[in-house]
Amino acid sequence: MRRRTSGVAPRHLAGWLFADLFLVLFLVVLGMTTSDGPDEAAGAGAGAGKSPRPSPSASGTSPSPSPSRTAKGPLGLDPKRHTFAVTLSSGATGRATGRGGLSATDRRKVVAALDKEIRASGDGRRIGMVITFGVAPQAQLGAATDLAEDVNRTLKSARPQAFCGGNVGTRPFWSGGSADRVEIELYYINACEGRG
């Protein structure tokens, strides 16, 4: 009879390995496609000022980063991640299974948390990548991943102007813990040329 051992099964580590490899590949591709053109070099040498911080409009919509090329640090994806967590309503993880989705209250919570993070750390930049972890016990691994995917869809549809174009990478993953919670990692683009 085989003895059971404690720890994380190797198949669950594959998701983490994939996330790390995806991030490295994304950074390499961005580094290859971003180049210092003469206009960028001249703008940096001429003491180009920092874009003003986005502020919410009177209608209560999200802060919208400037579409201009904001140069803060090296061009491309800023490697510094900005992490925030959102506690959702009771049963949100279970409702996410299959074709389920976020409730209107939970959608408002994740969008408000995104707006708050952009105001605190965005500096006029747009989002270049989002990794969302659905937090739940291992028994709800699939539902937690579905929840993370629902959150990613909500963020992109509710705040498209905050993202650097339509091809921004979003990835859903699972993380162990108490259910009905998500952890979101944002990575900003230092020079977004996308307009939509």
Results as ranks from 00 to 15, higher is better:
P52G: 10
R3S: 12
T61N: 08
F84A: 06
R119C: 06
V111R: 12
A148K: 06
L23F: 05
G60W: 07
A162V: 14
P172S: 14
T97M: 02
R125F: 02
A112P: 08
A58H: 13
A191K: 08
L23Q: 08
G100K: 08
A85E: 12
S90H: 11
P10G: 04
C164N: 09
A139W: 00
A19S: 15
F173I: 05
L75F: 09
T154P: 08
G98A: 04
L155S: 10
A85C: 05
A120R: 14
A19W: 03
P172D: 06
R11S: 14
Q161S: 12
S178K: 15
P65G: 01
R69D: 07
R81K: 12
V86S: 03
T97V: 05
G47Q: 07
S68N: 13
D146Y: 09
A104Q: 10
R11N: 13
D180S: 05
G134C: 02
L77D: 08
H12Y: 13
P56L: 02
T33K: 10
Q161K: 14
A44T: 14
A41N: 02
G31A: 13
D150K: 15
P52H: 00
K116G: 09
S6N: 11
S35V: 14
V135I: 15
A96N: 02
S68V: 10
R171Q: 06
P10A: 13
G169V: 13
T154F: 04
G73M: 09
P10M: 02
V111K: 06
F22P: 00
P74L: 11
V135M: 10
G134P: 04
A92H: 02
R69N: 06
F26T: 07
G142A: 04
W174C: 04
S35I: 06
C164E: 00
G101F: 02
L88V: 03
G194E: 15
